[in-house]
Amino acid sequence: MLELKDLAVSYGSITALHDVSLSVGQGDIVTLIGANGAGKSTTLRTISGLLKAQRGSIKYEGKEISNQPAHEIVARGISHVPEGRMIFANLTVHENLLMGAYLRKDRAKFHEEFEFIFGMFPRLKERSKQVAGTLSGGEQQMLAIGRALMSKPRCLMLDEPSLGIAPILVKTIFQKIVEINNSLGITILLVEQNANLALEVSSYGYVLETGRIILHDKSSALRVNERVKNAYLGG
C-alpha cells in the first residue's frame, strides 16, 4: 500500500536520510525503529508532505505522492500523528477532533468517528469541552491519535506514541493501536523508541541507523536478532 524507494532527504547541508526503501502492506502494522536522530521522524514527515524529498519515490496505492503538499496527502488517506504533543492547545478537545476532519465534507457522518474515538478513549469524552492544553500528557496523546482518525485515514502513521507517557498507559495506547488496526482495518506505520512493544504489536519491522535501513525482517525474527537485541532491546 505504501512503498518508499531510495528516498533521500536533507535539512540544508545535513543529509538525514540516504536511500531509504521500505514497504507497508495493506492492513499491516509495520514498525520503524532506531536510535535518536536515526531519521525516523524525518521519514514520516517526508511521507506526509511536511518535508521535501531530494531523491527517490513514495508510492501510495500505486500512485507517486512524493513532494505533494501535506493537504493532498491527507486527502488521499494518510494521516500523521506527529512526534511530541502537537495538539492545538487553545482549542477544546472537541474542536481539536473537529479539526482532524478539516478536509472532510460529510459533516453528517462525523458522529461515527466521534463514537469510535470516545468509545476507545472515554477520557476524551469526559473532557470534550476542556481546553486541550490543560490535558495530561497521556490524554494529549490520545487526542492526537483521535484527531488523526477523524480524517478517516486508510493509513495511519504514528510517531513515538509512547513518548513521555507512564509505562502503564503506554500498554493501553498500544492496545488501542492494535484495536484501530483490527476493527477499522487501518494500515499502520509505527515509529518507536520502545522497540520491545513495537515489535510485539507489529508484523514487520525496519531498523534505521543514521539515515539508512540496516535491517528488516518479520518482527518475530527481529525480536530474536542479536544485533537488534543488543542495540534496541536492552541486551
Binding site: L50, H71, V74, F88, L91, L103
Partner: peptide, 23 residues
C-alpha cells in the same frame, strides 16, 4: 467559524495544522 478555526491551529501548532491538511 468552522473555517476560522484554521487560523487558531496555525497559531497553536503550524506543523500539526499542516499534518491534518490545513493549508
Amino acid at each position: 467559524s468552522a473555517y476560522g478555526r484554521g487560523f487558531l491551529t496555525v497559531r497553536d501548532d503550524e506543523i500539526a495544522a499542516e499534518a491534518i491538511g490545513v493549508n
